[in-house]
Simulated assay, not measured.
Amino acid sequence: MLNIIYLKQIHMADTTPKINIIVVQDEMLQAEDIVNRLKELNYNIIGFTDSAAAALELISLHQHVDILLLDVVLKGATDGIELASIINEKYNIPFIFLTAHADNTIIDRAKKVKPRAYILKPFNDRQVSIAIELTLVNFSKKPLEKELLVKSDFNFSENQVPNRTDGFYLKKNNHFEHVGFLDMLFFRSDVNYTSIYTKSDLFIYSEGLNKIVEQLPKEHFIRVHRSYVVNINVVSGFEGNLLFIGNYKIPVSKKYKEAVFNLFKDVI
């Protein structure tokens, strides 16, 4: 019998699409821990299992699987690397290896199936979150082989955030989409990257948050933390040093606390 756990989706007021993930891990207790941590990061877990056969069944039953987190060692005759090879052959779904195995032989095998990342346990939640987001931003249908052979120089201007007075043109794969300022939820800095969360999508730029903030209208956006800038129009509530934006909880640092919470006076 296939050891497969389905997770019931709860429809909440926040209509922002979540990233759909399948977790495939050898130990079910570890899988449950990973699932709980991912749910805290606001990802939607379709299900989790400990075998390749069950993972393939999960994929076949769900049309919208965004990414898989695979262990190298799995229950049954097919290991995680062999499963990854099947996924490459039959499905157009990216995957990340999340494993405790760092043997050179295993890593050499893993390289051949071209994972989007190879993360060793114990892992850092932010590390996994960044890997997932960058994987999905960079993932698209494979270009034609001829296009792969064409050498092109990096165009700095293509990595900027073009703007107009009511919003930005944000780059998604190979095109730009206009996103109005009122549709932007918040900006999060991850070292050399900035993640832009909107009502319906996520965009990631290899550009510092400070440079992007300079282009934002101050009447709509406020810095609440070294790593966060929020749209004050979409804040739905607060508690302690946290602001609520849909299902997201945004920390407010001590430096910005007074200025931020003066905007959200509670009724006494």
Rank of each mutant, 00 (worst) to 15 (best):
residue 81 I to M: 01
residue 147 E to D: 15
residue 224 V to N: 02
residue 163 N to K: 15
residue 34 I to L: 13
residue 261 F to E: 02
residue 40 E to N: 14
residue 170 L to M: 14
residue 61 L to V: 05
residue 211 K to V: 12
residue 79 D to L: 05
residue 216 L to T: 03
residue 109 R to Q: 13
residue 17 P to N: 05
residue 159 N to Q: 01
residue 13 A to L: 13
residue 126 R to E: 14
residue 203 F to D: 01
residue 43 Y to G: 04
residue 204 I to Y: 06
residue 211 K to H: 11
residue 32 E to A: 13
residue 2 L to S: 01
residue 120 L to H: 04
residue 242 L to I: 08
residue 56 L to H: 13
residue 180 G to P: 03
residue 131 A to R: 00
residue 159 N to D: 11
residue 15 T to E: 13
residue 203 F to K: 02
residue 99 T to E: 01
residue 163 N to C: 05
residue 145 E to M: 13
residue 96 I to F: 04
residue 134 L to N: 14
residue 3 N to F: 11
residue 118 Y to F: 13
residue 21 I to E: 02
residue 133 E to G: 05
residue 227 S to H: 01
residue 26 D to M: 14
residue 100 A to H: 04
residue 11 H to C: 01
residue 14 D to M: 06
residue 217 P to E: 05
residue 116 R to I: 03
residue 263 L to T: 08
residue 100 A to F: 11
residue 237 G to I: 02
residue 165 T to F: 15
residue 101 H to D: 15
residue 216 L to D: 00
residue 164 R to M: 11
residue 130 I to N: 06
residue 188 R to Q: 14
residue 28 M to S: 09
residue 78 T to C: 11
residue 140 S to F: 15
residue 245 I to K: 02
residue 62 H to C: 06
residue 88 N to P: 09
residue 51 S to M: 02
residue 40 E to V: 11
residue 30 Q to N: 13
residue 244 F to Q: 13
residue 237 G to L: 05
residue 182 L to V: 15
residue 104 N to S: 13
residue 255 K to P: 09
residue 114 K to T: 15
residue 17 P to V: 09
residue 108 D to P: 06
residue 48 F to Q: 04
residue 97 F to D: 00
residue 66 D to I: 02
residue 168 F to Q: 08
residue 261 F to C: 09
residue 214 E to F: 11
residue 152 S to L: 13
residue 244 F to E: 00
residue 33 D to I: 06
residue 54 A to C: 09
residue 169 Y to K: 03
residue 230 V to A: 07
residue 71 D to V: 10
residue 70 L to Y: 03
residue 20 N to R: 10
residue 16 T to L: 10
residue 243 L to S: 08
residue 114 K to I: 08
residue 65 V to F: 07
residue 94 P to S: 08
residue 226 R to F: 10
residue 185 L to N: 01
residue 163 N to W: 12
residue 173 N to Q: 15
residue 208 G to Y: 15
residue 194 T to E: 10
